[in-house]
Amino acid sequence: MSLDPSFVGRTYPPTAPYQVGREKIREFATAIGATDPVHHDPAAAQALGHPDVVAPPTFPVVVTMAASRQIVEDPALGVDYSRVVHGDQRFAYTRPVVAGDELVCASTIEDVSTRGGHGFLTTRTDVSTVAGEPVVAVWSKIVVRGEA
């Protein structure tokens, strides 16, 4: 699957704010077996200096999903989602996500390439509060498998 390299550098408008709920953090933490009270009990989180329960490190994927969709479903880019596999993932945190955060995601396509019949797409999504405070930068590389 070949992807158009002219998409490198393309930016997408910020997504609508994502309201990080305390119960969503608890649900996510429970689903991955993270039992530390800092993910569940506001008092435990406050004891570490956080305003409310703290999300586990990979929770930002829940927040960036709409931004990822915006790119993968961009008809001009033409990714066949049924052929997508996840290649790489990276999170660089300014601070952890906490309940009560209202977060927006701004995405850029950092790299597009085709090798061995497969397409590779690297995106960077900057997650910040609605007030503009940076929280976490998320890189994701997907592989669009070529037809065998």
């Binding site: 956080h50 703290v54 993932q89 945190y93």
Partner: peptide, 18 residues
């Protein structure tokens, strides 16, 4: 990683390749 760190809020950078 957070269990080794002894703190659930200690991760500042984390990346993997699947």
């Amino acid at each position: 990683i957070t269990e080794w760190a002894g703190a659930p809020d200690a991760v500042v950078d984390y990346n993997v390749r699947f």
